[in-house]
């Protein structure tokens, strides 16, 4: 039986290393999580108190809703989602080639450009790390 991605030790380890690297690139990042498309947390790093399981489920819903909006408007699946607020911004995007979402919270003083760039670079690194460590691919739905 294939092990679920969120329970795969290699995925968890590679994800943890990538998220730690993300925090080094951008110290304004206070929370980052890697989750499956259907809302299971693979791993997270944090400097705040939050319910990681619930956040993973919410990120999954938001990702799917943003894709649905993209399809409705015929602009394709969303590349990334930004939630801006006075006290910080959340950026999330899919890890290329995987049914996995990277979601991160940055402090409000961080520029959106840098936050977006950091998230994108990390998502690409995770994709490469998963491939290099033979984390099995799971077919992503194609709608």
């Amino acid at each position: 039986m294939t092990i679920a991605l969120h329970q795969d030790p290699a995925a968890i380890e590679e994800g943890r290393a990538a998220l730690a690297g993300m925090g080094e690139i951008s110290p304004s990042m206070v929370y980052a999580a890697l989750l499956t498309d259907d809302g299971f947390e693979i791993v997270h790093v944090t400097r705040i108190q939050t319910d990681a399981t619930r956040f993973a489920s919410m990120s999954s819903s938001i990702q799917a809703l943003s894709d649905a909006v993209g399809h409705e408007l015929r602009i394709g699946a969303s590349d990334y989602v930004i939630i801006g607020s006075a006290q910080g911004h959340v950026i999330q995007m899919r890890v290329p080639g995987r049914p996995v979402v990277l979601a991160a919270l940055f402090q409000s003083h961080e520029t959106l450009g840098k936050a977006l760039s950091t998230t994108r670079v990390t998502a690409e690194r995770i994709s490469h790390r998963f491939a290099a460590s033979s984390v099995p691919a799971m077919a992503a739905p194609n709608f």
Partner: peptide, 16 residues
Amino acid sequence: VSTEAANSERHVVDKA
């Protein structure tokens, strides 16, 4: 309008 994602729990319910 659907919001479907790949199912990680195939052992619980076997659907994609």
